[in-house]
């Protein structure tokens, strides 16, 4: 309850600061916000656009959240998402019956995401390498690897700016407008992780490790196993974000500058913070982020400069994410000071 109130206050603050920015730019802020809301929610088609934009963000946000619950700062969703996308698409090189093809693509993508997360876990648990460092590095490896594959190996023969299209047998069936049945993956994973974290022994252990690793260890909980589980589940979730972006959303391909995969992984961090690292909060946070992003894009159509839109968008997102980010930072600081006896 307090969290909701806090978020509403943060939202109001962000909106006001954004308005001030636009006013300083000599624009009418309320007209612009009106355009934003209309662009994102003005009609059913716009709503489907907003929703379909939110769906992969749910998954990358869950990647961050489940690791944060285990006390880690996992920013590897970006790389795992890219790997998932390219593996899912590559499954289209084979011919399989409809439906099964989609299932196989998701399975392989999930596997690839978990494998991409595995070195992070091993480096942390065996060599003590901080996950921030290893995920940043693996993100770049994934970026260049994906770029290479997309441009050199998977590129379409006629339309050079993207890969071949995912075959129909591998796509999520359309629902309405830009929305496809890929929503079941995002909502399903969110519900699963909610159950996992609060109703399963392993999830309970993940949370225990995140809140107090020493006490967890003293209670016989395996800290490495909990962290490994959190990282692997996160890897799968992020990989599926990439997969549904390719298999469940127009244009059912990867553009050769990877722009349609964009910053899904990094945006997921903001979404996780907005959603308080809670799977159900993340569903709301992703929708909120989707509204902002879709609405902002439509503001551009009204001749509002792109840079200004991005500033306003950034201000609101930062305001919404700040409470949880501060909480995480405080916890980290408490832990580090606790280790230095006075």
């Amino acid at each position: 309850m307090r969290a909701i109130l806090e978020s509403l206050l943060a939202l109001a603050l962000g909106v006001l600061v954004g308005a001030a920015v636009m006013a300083a730019w000599g624009r009418d802020p309320w007209g612009a916000y009106g355009a934003l809301l209309q662009g994102a929610l003005g009609n059913l088609r716009a709503l489907t656009s907003t929703l379909s934009r939110s769906l992969p963000l749910v998954l990358t946000a869950l990647t961050f959240a489940v690791a944060a619950r285990a006390g880690m700062f996992n920013i590897g969703a970006q790389g795992q998402m890219l790997v998932g996308a390219v593996v899912a698409l590559s499954t289209g090189l084979f011919t399989l019956p409809a439906g099964l093809h989609l299932g196989v693509a998701l399975a392989l993508a999930g596997l690839a995401g978990a494998l991409w997360a595995l070195p992070v876990a091993l480096l942390k648990l065996v060599r003590g390498v901080n996950e921030v460092i290893s995920t940043i590095m693996l993100n770049w490896v994934a970026h260049w690897l994906t770029l290479y594959l997309v441009v050199q190996k998977l590129s379409d023969r006629v339309v050079g700016q993207r890969t071949f299209l995912a075959p129909a047998s591998m796509r999520f069936p359309p629902l309405y407008g830009e929305l496809t049945w890929s929503w079941t993956v995002s909502v399903g994973v969110a519900l699963f992780l909610f159950w996992f974290l609060w109703y399963h022994r392993q999830g309970y252990e993940v949370r225990a490790v995140g809140l107090n690793p020493k006490a967890a260890r003293a209670a016989g909980i395996s800290v490495p196993r909990a962290m490994l589980v959190a990282l692997l589940l996160g890897g799968i979730s992020a990989a599926w974000a990439g997969a549904i972006q390719v298999l469940g959303r127009f244009p059912y391909a990867i553009t050769s500058d990877l722009a349609n995969l964009g910053n899904l992984g990094f945006d997921g961090i903001a979404v996780a913070l907005i959603g308080r690292n809670h799977p159900l909060g993340i569903l709301g946070g992703a929708f909120f982020f989707g509204v902002l992003a879709t609405g902002a894009a439509r503001m551009g159509l009204r001749g509002i400069p792109l840079e200004m839109i991005q500033i306003v968008q950034g201000v609101i997102v930062v305001a919404m994410a700040a409470p949880e980010a501060l909480r995480l930072l405080r916890r980290v600081r408490r832990r580090t000071t606790a280790e230095v006896p006075v």
């Binding site: 830009e178 879709t294 894009a297 439509r298 001749g303």
Partner: peptide
């Protein structure tokens, strides 16, 4: 005359649809 530029390829379809509608 109006003109606008795509923020990213993700926007192509939504943008064109929004303009058309």
């Amino acid at each position: 005359l109006y003109y606008t530029t795509a923020a990213s390829p993700l926007e192509f379809l939504s943008d064109l649809a929004s303009l058309a509608e």
